[in-house]
Amino acid sequence: MPTYNKLVRDKIPQIIEATGKSYTTETLSEEKYIKELKTKLGEELDEYLQTNDDNEALEELADVLELIHSLTKVHGSTYEGLESIRQEKSKERGGFNERIYLKEVED
């Protein structure tokens, strides 16, 4: 039996059960949940960095976005609250759309 020891999406146990397989899970404490969300975010970012086409990239970005939604909740906010912070930062400092690559700043 393979061992995974990782955070999975909420419906994964039902999907496994539908295949006739058995599984073992646990419900994480808040502290461990946050730790595992951060670990999973790193994994999904790595998977995104390894993509070779737009469809793969979008699939991985959707996973990253799902994790961002969950992390936003554990940090006491909503996605709308996070979006408001993003918009304010964009208004003050700009986005990344102009492809500006800072090479150096003279003292």
Rank of each mutant, 00 (worst) to 15 (best):
Pro2Ala: 14
Thr3Arg: 12
Tyr4Arg: 04
Asn5Met: 12
Asn5Pro: 03
Asn5His: 08
Lys6Pro: 03
Lys6His: 10
Val8Gln: 05
Arg9Pro: 08
Arg9Thr: 01
Arg9His: 04
Lys11Thr: 14
Ile12Cys: 02
Ile12Asp: 00
Ile12Phe: 02
Ile12Val: 14
Pro13Glu: 06
Gln14Pro: 05
Gln14Ile: 03
Ile15Trp: 08
Glu17Val: 04
Glu17Ala: 14
Ala18Lys: 12
Thr19Met: 09
Thr19Asp: 10
Thr19Phe: 05
Thr19Val: 05
Thr19Tyr: 02
Thr19Leu: 08
Gly20Met: 08
Gly20Pro: 07
Gly20Gln: 07
Gly20Lys: 02
Ser22Gly: 12
Ser22His: 10
Tyr23Ala: 10
Tyr23Cys: 12
Thr24Arg: 05
Thr24Met: 06
Leu28Phe: 01
Leu28Met: 09
Leu28Tyr: 01
Glu30Leu: 06
Glu31Phe: 08
Tyr33Met: 03
Ile34Glu: 00
Lys35Val: 08
Glu36Arg: 06
Leu37Thr: 01
Thr39Cys: 08
Lys40Leu: 02
Leu41Asn: 00
Leu41Gln: 00
Leu45Asn: 02
Leu45Val: 13
Leu49Asn: 14
Thr51Phe: 06
Thr51Gln: 07
Asn52Trp: 02
Asp54Phe: 08
Asn55Lys: 15
Asn55Gln: 15
Asn55Arg: 15
Glu56Cys: 09
Glu56Gly: 15
Ala57Leu: 06
Ala57Pro: 04
Ala57Asn: 03
Ala57Gln: 11
Glu60Arg: 01
Ala62Tyr: 09
Asp63Lys: 00
Asp63Val: 02
Asp63Asn: 00
Asp63Met: 01
Val64Arg: 00
Val64Ala: 01
Leu65Ser: 07
Leu65Lys: 09
Glu66Arg: 12
Leu67Met: 00
Ile68Trp: 11
Ile68Lys: 05
His69Tyr: 14
Ser70Ile: 03
Leu71Phe: 08
Leu71Thr: 00
Thr72Ile: 04
Thr72Met: 05
Lys73Thr: 04
Lys73Ala: 09
Val74Phe: 11
Val74Gly: 06
His75Asn: 15
Ser77Val: 04
Ser77Pro: 01
Thr78Met: 09
Thr78Asn: 05
Thr78Glu: 06
Tyr79His: 11
Tyr79Trp: 14
Tyr79Phe: 15
Glu80Met: 15
Glu80Tyr: 14
Gly81Pro: 01
Gly81His: 09
Gly81Arg: 03
Leu82Val: 04
Glu83Cys: 06
Glu83Thr: 12
Ser84Ile: 10
Ile85Phe: 11
Ile85Ala: 11
Ile85Tyr: 12
Arg86Cys: 13
Arg86Trp: 08
Lys89His: 00
Lys89Phe: 00
Ser90Leu: 15
Ser90His: 14
Lys91Leu: 07
Lys91Thr: 08
Arg93Lys: 15
Arg93Glu: 03
Gly94Thr: 08
Asn97Trp: 13
Asn97Thr: 14
Glu98His: 10
Arg99Ala: 13
Arg99Gln: 03
Ile100Ala: 06
Ile100Glu: 11
Ile100Thr: 08
Leu102Cys: 07
Leu102Val: 14
Lys103Cys: 10
Val105His: 11
Val105Gln: 03
Asp107Ser: 15
